[in-house]
């Protein structure tokens, strides 16, 4: 049996929902809102890796009792465990390209998009709820996560943090635009998990970063977004939203790299 612990179809969760749907795999959906502090989060049994997951609020796949974490590695896992309808190109060069995209998206795009998304949507939502910051922070055992949540609760994103995040988001759109000049898809002549992984972060950008993600500045990216949104699996994944505004669902993402 497959279970997916996930939140709204945006960023990390969206990636895994699309992959499951594309592969036609049946799964139990366990909806988990990481910004809801009203009760205890009901997590599955974790292993050493899952407990130390830098994407703690990200999705968790449970396959026959085994917790699999890190959204991109969930996609790789699905292709390894269920080889039908492969989402990797399947040749050494194509697979290498997919993994280079994944590294870039995870290391540069993810923290950039998450910081801008938290500033735009999470900060005002948290303020409205008048939470007790100390009791919320007590929930986080991992020091990196605690720092990330403290930033959101106290709205302490510096000008430099925001500028660096905008730089990373702009760089992402630039790279995608450049790749799409060569081919309709990012890593091969066909749609692959590189497109899924990138789409998961870029789908929300026309609203979150309209200055870089628009028809004039990034026409190929906008057309690629439309091609992906038209896929039945993607529609189904996006339709799993409970709020009706999945592209506003943000929690503090992985930290910005401390080293080049």
């Amino acid at each position: 049996m497959l279970e997916l612990y996930h939140w709204e179809p945006n960023t990390f969760s969206l990636k895994t929902l699309i992959a499951l749907k594309e592969k036609g795999l049946a799964f139990e959906s366990r909806y988990l809102d990481p910004t809801d502090f009203s009760g205890e989060a009901r997590l599955p049994a974790l292993n050493l890796e899952a407990e130390n997951n830098p994407e703690t609020e990200g999705p968790i796949l449970v396959h026959e009792g085994q917790a699999i974490t890190e959204s991109f590695f969930i996609l790789e896992y699905l292709d390894d465990a269920f080889p039908d309808a492969p989402l990797r190109p399947g040749d050494p060069e194509g697979d290498w390209k997919v993994r280079v995209w994944a590294r870039f998206l995870g290391e540069r795009t993810a923290p950039g998009v998450a910081t801008l998304g938290c500033k735009a949507y999470l900060v005002p939502a948290l303020r409205e709820r008048r939470l007790n910051d100390a009791s919320v922070l007590d929930r986080f055992k991992n020091p990196e996560r605690r720092v990330a949540w403290e930033q959101a609760l106290t709205d302490s994103y510096s000008k430099a943090d925001l500028a660096e995040s905008r730089r990373k988001v702009a760089l992402t759109v630039e790279k995608i635009e450049e790749a799409l000049a060569q081919s309709d898809w990012l890593a091969a002549e066909r749609y692959t998990m590189a497109d899924i992984a990138a789409f998961a972060f870029v789908n929300c950008l026309p609203k979150l970063a309209p200055e870089v993600c628009n028809e004039d500045a990034a026409p190929r990216t906008m057309a690629w977004l439309e091609r992906i949104r038209a896929r039945p699996a993607v529609r189904e994944a996006l339709a799993m939203s409970r709020t009706g505004r999945p592209d506003e669902a943000f929690a503090p993402g992985p930290e910005h790299a401390r080293w080049g």
């Binding site: 890796e49 830098p54 890190e70 590695f73 790789e76 896992y77 390894d80 995870g106 401390r258 080293w259």
Partner: peptide
């Protein structure tokens, strides 16, 4: 597949958490 996932998990942990600090 589970071991392969663990291999990737550890490589990311090494590349993005451990190695930057050791470097």
């Amino acid at each position: 597949p589970v071991e392969r996932w663990r291999m990737r998990w550890w490589m990311k942990f090494l590349d993005q958490f451990y190695s930057p600090s050791a470097s």
